[in-house]
């Protein structure tokens, strides 16, 4: 444990306001997001840049403020997403696990209700997610995938923009903290 870590630890433990959700929403929201990802794309082609499962992962991890839950949740969402696509199971899983962990860890340090921070975090995590997926595909699985940075940047921005109202909708699912 370095000095820096200690300092972090000193700052961090203001008791985070853990947001609670109804258990059902933990199940239904990600399922809907994945379902949207799989089946709605077909009807409305222009939403294909949307990564709803990622947004859901970020949101729940961020609001729950517990890295373990974030990781597990991310892993579940990613694996579900994987199993419905035709690539190896685990590619999205690994990336989303990390996203969940990072989102939850970050949430310990900032106000999760601030829209600006939400926007920034979502944007950064989207880019991280895409880069991570690319890295997994390239280095672990050995596929040759191009990294389209400009496209990624634009898509990340769009996703982040969508994320703000989306999170507000999800905020409705909150149970009052006890």
């Amino acid at each position: 444990m370095t000095d820096f870590d200690n300092r972090l630890m000193d700052i961090a433990p203001r008791e985070p306001a853990v947001t609670r959700f109804r258990p059902l929403s933990w199940l239904v929201v990600p399922l809907l997001a994945i379902w949207f990802q799989v089946f709605v794309h077909r009807f409305v082609g222009y939403v294909s840049y949307l990564e709803l499962p990622l947004l859901v992962t970020i949101y729940f991890s961020m609001m729950r403020r517990q890295p373990i839950i974030g990781s597990v949740f991310g892993a579940c969402v990613g694996l579900a997403q994987d199993s419905l696509s035709d690539h190896y199971v685990g590619m999205f899983g690994i990336v989303k696990t990390m996203v969940g962990f990072i989102a939850a860890s970050l949430s310990l340090r900032f106000d999760v209700d601030s829209p600006l921070l939400r926007l920034t975090v979502t944007y950064a995590l989207f880019v991280f997610h895409q880069m991570g997926y690319w890295a997994v595909a390239k280095f672990l699985v050995g596929q040759s995938v191009d990294l389209q940075l400009p496209q990624m940047a634009i898509q990340g921005f769009l996703n982040a923009l969508i994320a703000i109202p989306f999170y507000l909708v999800l905020d409705r699912l909150k149970e009052e903290a006890r």
């Binding site: 890295p67 373990i68 990781s71 597990v72 892993a75 694996l79 199993s83 190896y88 199971v89 685990g90 590619m91 899983g93 690994i94 696990t97 990390m98 962990f101 860890s105 997994v136 672990l140 699985v141 050995g142």
Partner: peptide, 26 residues
Amino acid sequence: HITVLLLLLMAQLLLLAYQVKTNQEV
């Protein structure tokens, strides 16, 4: 925290490695 993360990642890595190595699907 970090242990759970690592375990999750390791498990999925193993899963992935299994698929890539054996070229079999789960």
